[in-house]
């Protein structure tokens, strides 16, 4: 009876239905945790990149491009947090950066999600290797540029950042995402 085709069909159907049911249950069970974790990370990131902010407010959301405002205890605006997504080396990179209220400089930048090469491109999310160069970058002199060749952090021009050695594509990706987001911000939130 094990060789009969109706048994084969029934067996496979049974296995698939059980597996499907199990997965549907487990996916529904974990979904709120996954969503809550994402939201918490975003909240935290907004408050991180706008120094002094204790709460945030959504200013604009256009697809993957999102602008938040960081507020102090009295509800006064301290600056903006801009969330943007763009291509990295292996997959999309999503990041968030803070701007002062006049939008003349980038205060801080954080990479929220990336799937680039561990140990190389993945260092775009690493403070020591990459993110520290993004503190207090000037936006009044045009776009952010990669320093050529990389320099000591203290001798970088105010609109320059260092690339990660061995991961130029990831570094360029991040710079392009930030520059694109700054341009889009000008358009969307004049």
């Amino acid at each position: 009876m094990k060789e009969k085709s109706y048994y084969i069909i029934l067996f496979l159907t049974f296995v698939s239905v059980v597996a499907g049911g199990l997965l549907a249950y487990f996916s529904a069970y974990t979904a709120p945790y996954i969503a809550a974790d994402k939201k918490k990370q975003l909240e935290q990131a907004i408050l991180d990149v706008v120094p002094g902010a204790v709460k945030s407010r959504t200013v604009k959301e256009v697809g993957d491009f999102k602008v938040y405002e960081g507020l102090d205890g009295d509800g006064k605006s301290l600056g903006y947090a801009v969330f943007a997504v763009g291509p990295g080396f292996s997959d999309k990179i999503s990041l968030i950066f803070g701007m002062d209220a006049k939008r003349e400089k980038i205060t801080l930048m954080r990479v929220l999600e990336q799937k680039d090469t561990p140990g190389l491109g993945a260092k775009v999310a690493d403070e020591e290797s990459f993110l520290k160069f993004w503190k207090e970058r000037d936006l009044t002199k045009g776009e952010i540029l990669l320093a050529k060749p990389p320099k000591e952090a203290s001798s970088l021009k105010p609109n320059e950042v260092n690339a990660i050695s061995g991961a130029t594509i990831s570094s360029r990706g991040v710079v392009a995402i930030v520059n694109g987001a700054v341009a889009q911000l000008k358009k969307e939130v004049p």
């Binding site: 094990k2 060789e3 048994y7 084969i8 067996f11 496979l12 296995v15 698939s16 597996a19």
Partner: peptide
């Protein structure tokens, strides 16, 4: 219980 002809398919689903 697993039919020999489709054992791979059953394995992969599990």
């Amino acid at each position: 219980l697993i039919p020999t002809q489709v054992r791979m398919a059953a394995f992969i689903v599990i």
